[in-house]
């Protein structure tokens, strides 16, 4: 079936048209899958989330009033389903405060330690796959409030406004969580880029991609 525009899709879904459900899945499965993987870090949970999300949309389509973009509504359902699943996991301890995530400062507010600029390194020398793996691992260490903001805004690339509406938080809350999440990830990557290669390899042995993040 060729892609339907959202209006057409919605009205046919409201009539419980099975072909429209198929079209919905074809159009949004990649998005929902991507989101689910970023949230949970593994395909098995993503599989269950996919199923829950599309079935929920089909069942609850009548509650969509068109006050937001259809894709925002889908993101909201997907986020809620993912968070519900993640809340059953052991709770993640808080991440450090903002001041502790940046470079150490002297008493009068100047940087007190050398800061390595690995941003170029990331393009040229670092193993990109391993770097991505590190980011995924670090996302899995973020408490859920931070993770949801980070995934929607920085990974999925939604605007700040759309993200704040989907998560029903203020722009100020979004800003502070996103900034801390970014600082936390930056620090994780900085630590990675500064570890000598040999101990890096030793470390990889204990890290499997599909392991749930405690």
């Amino acid at each position: 079936m060729s892609p339907l525009d959202d209006q057409e899709l919605i009205s046919r879904l409201k009539k419980k048209d099975e072909a429209a459900l198929e079209a919905l899945i074809a159009q949004y499965e990649t998005k929902v899958f991507g989101l689910a993987v970023r949230f949970t870090g593994n395909h098995q949970d993503a599989e269950e989330i996919l199923q829950d999300v599309f079935w929920t949309i089909f069942e609850k389509i009548d509650t969509f009033r068109g006050e937001s973009k259809f894709s925002s509504w889908i993101y909201r359902i997907a986020t809620n389903v993912a968070l519900m699943k993640l809340r059953k996991r052991p709770k993640i301890r808080e991440i450090p405060l903002e001041e502790e995530l940046g470079p150490a400062m002297t008493e009068d507010g100047m940087i007190a330690e050398p800061v390595v600029d690995w941003s170029r390194l990331a393009d040229e020398e670092l193993d990109r796959k391993e770097l991505d793996h590190r980011i995924e691992g670090a996302i899995g260490l973020l408490p859920l409030d931070y993770r949801s903001v980070f995934v929607l805004r920085d990974v999925e690339g939604l605007s700040a406004e759309e993200t704040s509406r989907i998560l029903r938080i203020s722009i100020a809350a979004l800003k502070s969580r996103l900034h801390r999440a970014r600082l936390f990830l930056r620090k994780q990557l900085a630590d990675y880029t500064q570890v000598p290669q040999s101990s890096l390899e030793a470390d990889q042995v204990g890290m499997k991609k599909d392991e749930p993040h405690a």
Binding site: P114, V116, D154, V155, R182, R186
Partner: peptide, 20 residues
Amino acid sequence: GCIAFVNTYRQTITLSKELR
């Protein structure tokens, strides 16, 4: 120090976007 901080902060965002 601040240049390195800003560059790596930006790079973190870039790398995350490319995960999508």
